[in-house]
């Protein structure tokens, strides 16, 4: 194969066939003086800001170092991660179910989904957290039975639920997230070409099977980047749980400490450093998830397919 340049004829007569790639063009690049000048100004300003912050007598760096790896803080970090993961799992699973319900031709299912999304998106998550935290005021006991008839198989005091901060947190954050995730998943499902469903249906695949095996895996490609965004957002939203007191997650714990010691700024620095660290980890993880769900769409597939073909050949001969 030769390069395509050979077709460009400059003089009379056909160009001589070229077998080797010609030398690449060497030209002086355009100089972007403005970029250099502005970069210098920005770096200067950033250094000035960092200097003023680091050297500030109001930031007690000894305290920051003291608290950064304290067991109290580390337990808070672990709790924050746990809450984020569980709330996102609840949100993603719930959101997928809600999205499929919303798109169903069953009017009961799609209405339930619509009302759910309407309610949970229509009220602030902060309010929902406080509401779940105080659910005991609204309902003193939870009954398992037939509503409105007084028939009951048993009941439990709502305190058993409310006193579990973790349960409240999962309810508040997970149920709220499900409403948002539902819209993301729905957008992802709609983005999949209608021909895909038709092909699956024409093979005799039932609508639910078609959704699960053909449409949703392709929708994931669109959904994963936005879900990664939601996860990062969720990680920070867990800090709102501090309003319930009790100090489970990172920010709640630090808030309780600085309410007593008044080391507000250093502890906020500690919190920020941890949140930044965690979101950085999540951003990296998101990259790999996208690569996985983008399979079949990128150039990396050629290599993977080659490897599988080799394995297949080895099996056939072995």
């Amino acid at each position: 194969m030769t390069t395509s340049n050979q077709g460009l004829s400059t003089g009379a007569g056909p160009p001589a066939p070229v077998d080797t790639r010609p030398e690449a063009i060497k030209a002086k690049p355009v100089r972007h003086w403005g970029r250099w000048i502005s970069a210098v100004i920005v770096i200067y300003l950033v250094i000035a800001l960092l200097y003023s912050f680091i050297k500030s007598p109001n930031v007690d760096w000894a305290t920051v170092g003291n608290f950064l790896f304290k067991p109290l803080v580390l337990r808070g970090v672990v709790a924050t991660v746990e809450l984020t993961v569980v709330a996102m799992v609840v949100g993603a699973v719930g959101g997928t179910i809600l999205a499929v319900m919303r798109l169903s031709d069953n009017p009961v299912l799609s209405t339930i989904s619509w009302v759910y999304i309407w309610f949970f998106r229509g009220t602030p998550v902060y309010v929902q957290i406080i509401l779940w935290g105080n659910i005991g005021v609204l309902y003193q006991r939870f009954y398992a039975g037939l509503p409105l008839t007084g028939l009951s198989l048993g009941s439990t005091g709502s305190g058993a639920l409310v006193n579990h901060l973790f349960v409240v947190a999962i309810l508040a954050l997970g149920l709220n997230e499900a409403a948002y995730a539902a819209e993301l998943v729905r957008a992802g499902i709609i983005s999949v070409d209608a021909g895909q469903s038709e092909a699956a249906l024409s093979l005799g695949m039932a609508p639910t099977l078609t959704m699960r095996r053909i449409v949703l895996p392709q929708a994931m490609r669109v959904i994963i980047p936005t879900m990664g965004n939601e996860t990062i957002s969720m990680l920070k939203t867990t800090s709102l749980l501090a309003v319930l007191g009790g100090g489970v997650e990172l920010f709640g714990r630090l808030q309780i400490v600085y309410a007593q010691t008044f080391q507000i700024v250093p502890l906020l620095v500690v919190a920020s450093m941890w949140y930044l660290f965690l979101t950085t980890i999540l951003t990296i993880g998101q990259h790999y998830l996208e690569a996985y769900f983008g399979r079949g769409f990128g150039a990396a597939e050629a290599e993977a397919a080659e490897k599988r073909a080799e394995r297949r050949a080895a099996r056939a001969h072995g």
Binding site: D193, G195, A199, A200, L203, Q218, R221, G296
Partner: peptide
């Protein structure tokens, strides 16, 4: 069996 103008192969499968 049905064969479509635009193939409609499942792109996430080999």
């Amino acid at each position: 069996g049905m064969v479509f103008q635009r193939f409609n192969l499942f792109p996430h499968m080999t």
